[in-house]
């Protein structure tokens, strides 16, 4: 008899709670735009913010409302842009892949620290103490703030500077926004010629700070047949709209801060860490 009451009681409570839950879920249902969910399903889910929205959810609802363009997801690339375009039934404009590039070649063999830094081991903290322990005030500090935020683990610290593996870079730009020195820039994937320096000091000072620095000698500016290179603030700057990747400037550069590079396309196994 006691068992029967116990059974009935638990059963009754469970039924009441079940009915209540059912009622609640019907009464307080929140309508979700099905298009937003479809768009959200295509997105990679890195929540990197490269699109300019707070996260993938935010961007998806903006696309579903029609206020955002479908080609803003940089980690997703052209595939995702095309998928979103198909869902929304709109034409997708051209999509250009970008990769992160560390414009500093001040590795341990090229530059010496002026002080020994023993504080919190992050670039952000180090840069707050007189701009960091490097001789060069502009260069990579090498404590790996960028490597810590990279969602795909494409950045490793090697010989005192950040090295970015372009084949695993999804172009989200998190590292570029994290770097307190601003040496990481986002450049087009098909770039062949780069300036491997961010130092805007005058030639002699830049040379003293780092063996690999751009000294602003203007040899590249004179040699470039297309007028793509200009020296601004003692630092060579390449206009990628004019650059024809001829490589003449690379041969002319006396310090080797102009380099010919090749950014491999993204590897199939690039995985986004949770």
């Amino acid at each position: 008899m006691n068992i029967l009451t116990a059974f009935l009681l638990v059963f009754a409570v469970a039924i009441v709670l079940g009915v209540l839950l059912l009622l609640f879920s019907h009464l307080f249902m929140v309508k979700v735009d099905p298009k937003m969910q479809e768009v959200r399903a295509c997105l990679p889910g890195v929540n990197c913010g490269a699109c300019g929205y707070k996260g993938c959810d935010d961007y998806a609802s903006a696309v579903a409302e029609g206020t955002a363009k479908p080609n803003l997801c940089i980690p997703g690339g052209k595939d995702v842009a095309d998928q979103i375009g198909a869902i929304m039934g709109i034409e997708v404009e051209t999509f250009e892949n970008k990769v992160a590039f560390n414009a500093c070649n001040g590795h341990c063999n090229a530059t010496d620290p002026i002080a020994e830094y023993d504080g919190i081991q992050t670039c952000y903290a180090a840069s707050m103490l007189y701009g960091g322990p490097n001789t060069c005030r502009f260069g990579c500090l090498g404590y790996g703030d960028c490597a810590a935020v990279c969602p795909t683990g494409a950045i490793c610290m090697s010989n005192g500077i950040a090295r970015i593996d372009a084949s695993h870079c999804i172009g989200c730009g998190l590292c570029s926004r994290t770097c307190p020195k601003g040496v990481i820039t986002m450049i087009p994937q098909d770039t062949k010629t780069v300036v491997f320096c961010s130092n805007t000091q005058k030639g002699a000072d830049a040379r003293k700070a780092c063996k690999n620095a751009c000294i602003g000698c203007k040899k590249c500016e004179k040699a470039c047949p297309n007028g793509a290179i200009t020296v601004q603030n003692n630092l060579a700057v390449i206009d990628y709209d004019k650059c024809a990747d001829c490589g003449i400037c690379v041969k002319e550069c006396p310090t080797g801060c102009l380099k010919t590079v090749f950014f491999p396309h993204r590897a199939e196994d690039t995985a986004i860490a949770e």
């Binding site: 006691n2 009451t5 116990a6 009681l9 638990v10 409570v13 469970a14 709670l17 079940g18 209540l20 839950l21 609640f24 879920s25 307080f28 249902m29 929140v30």
Partner: peptide, 26 residues
């Protein structure tokens, strides 16, 4: 039926949290 305390309380708390979740969502 004092011995049913644990199982009933767990049942009730779990459902309550679900209801609270629905309310908050709305």
């Amino acid at each position: 039926l004092g011995y049913l305390q644990n199982i009933l309380f767990i049942l009730v708390i779990a459902s309550l949290v679900q209801m609270l979740e629905l309310l908050l969502k709305k």
